[in-house]
Amino acid sequence: MARQKHKSKEIEEVLQYAEQNGWIVEVHNKSKSHAWGVMKCQNNDTNCWNGIYCSTSVWSTPKNTMNHAKQLKRIVDKCIYKEDK
C-alpha cells in the first residue's frame, strides 16, 4: 500500500526524492505528535557521518516549511551512498 502523503507539497517532493535515493519513509500513527514521520537510510552506515543522519524526523508543521524541506534535502544529498557522487 502506498504511504500517506505529507500535506506540504515541498516536503512531499523531498520525501519522494529521498525514496528515489534509497531512503524509506515511515509515517507515524500517533496523531498527537509533532513528528509526522521519519526518513531512514537503509545503509545505516557508521562510516557515513557517524550514521547520525540515517534516521531523520519529519515534522508535521515545521516553523518554516521551505526551510525544513531544504534541510531534509541537504541530508539526503550528503549521504555517501547517493549515486551521483
Binding site: H34, G51, C54
Partner: peptide, 17 residues
C-alpha cells in the same frame, strides 16, 4: 515533542546513532 515545543521547530532532527 519536547524539542519542538521548546523552540526547536526551526530545526530538522536526526538521531540515527
Amino acid at each position: 515533542d519536547a524539542l519542538f515545543e521548546n523552540g526547536c521547530d526551526d530545526a530538522t532532527i536526526s538521531a540515527g546513532q
